[in-house]
């Protein structure tokens, strides 16, 4: 039963050409432009430093835009009567949510793979610890989509979802040092960043690229991402009843 929801959600996303733009084309354009701006006139060492910060930084920022697709999908289902109709079938809410959630984890994993591949092909970035980097990417996808799931079941309108996604993605990027190196930011913001998953993901991804990520730090970063993702899922399960109450039928 969960498989049916998964397959349907996957099909819908594969037909969505907008997703390709938001998730792949736009991040590539931004990454390219900002690298060009920040590396002009820099020497090779500084250039490598900037690229190693910008590529994972923009990946972490742009994965959050999947939340727009998640919000749109849930709100559309809610308002078209599909949510209520599925609720009349013998499928438990947690499996319904899992079926809707898993395709997005997969999509974000593919997005991260494409964006790192872009970095490797165009800028020859270092990927010294590929296994840890892959694992972190999966945790990152899990975290952002888990959070997206909660957001999708909490917002009343699509516009509200899009606005909140931008606040979370752009605000989080600013505070977590995805745009500017974290050590150049004020102390208070550096402390605040430690509460945000973007910070942990960015730092850990950078370290895997350099080949300096210790296992302890890997487990800490993964733990933070996992905790955020799981919290998102659990909160979404709690929100489901309220979501269903306002669903059209």
């Amino acid at each position: 039963m969960m498989g049916a929801i998964f397959t349907l959600e996957m099909k819908k996303n594969l037909q969505d050409k907008g997703l390709l733009f938001w998730m792949v084309i736009l991040p590539i354009i931004f990454t390219y432009l900002f690298i060009e701006i920040f590396t002009s006139g820099a020497d090779d060492i500084a250039k490598l430093e900037v690229i190693t910060s910008i590529v994972p930084g923009y990946i972490v920022m742009f994965v959050f835009f999947i939340m727009i697709s998640m919000v749109t999908s849930f709100i559309k289902d809610r308002d078209s009567g599909m949510t209520a109709r599925i609720a009349s079938a013998p499928i438990k809410p947690k499996f319904y949510l899992l079926g809707k959630w898993l395709p997005y984890i997969l999509i974000v994993c593919v997005q991260i793979f494409i964006l790192f591949s872009f970095g490797k092909v165009v800028y020859d970035i270092n990927l010294e610890q590929p296994i840890l980097l892959t694992s972190l990417s999966i945790f990152l996808a899990y975290m952002v989509t888990g959070f997206g799931l909660f957001l999708a079941l909490s917002v009343k309108t699509e516009n509200m979802g899009i606005a909140l996604t931008q606040v979370i993605a752009l605000g989080g990027a600013l505070i977590s040092g995805l745009w500017v190196p974290i050590d150049m930011m004020p102390n208070m913001l550096q402390k605040t960043a430690e509460f945000l998953p973007q910070y942990w993901a960015h730092q850990a991804l950078q370290d895997t690229m350099h080949g300096t990520l210790a296992y302890k730090d890997f487990f800490t970063a993964s733990g933070v991402l996992f905790a955020y993702g799981t919290s998102g899922f659990l909160l979404a399960v709690i929100r489901y009843r309220s979501f269903l109450k306002v669903a059209r039928s």
Binding site: M1, G3, A4, K11, S80, M82, R85, I91
Partner: peptide
Amino acid sequence: PQEICLEQNLSAISNLYFFGKLYD
């Protein structure tokens, strides 16, 4: 339901498969 709850971009048979699978 009162609303037409179908996936507009899928075929008729795909919609039927989807709902059939929901009932195992």
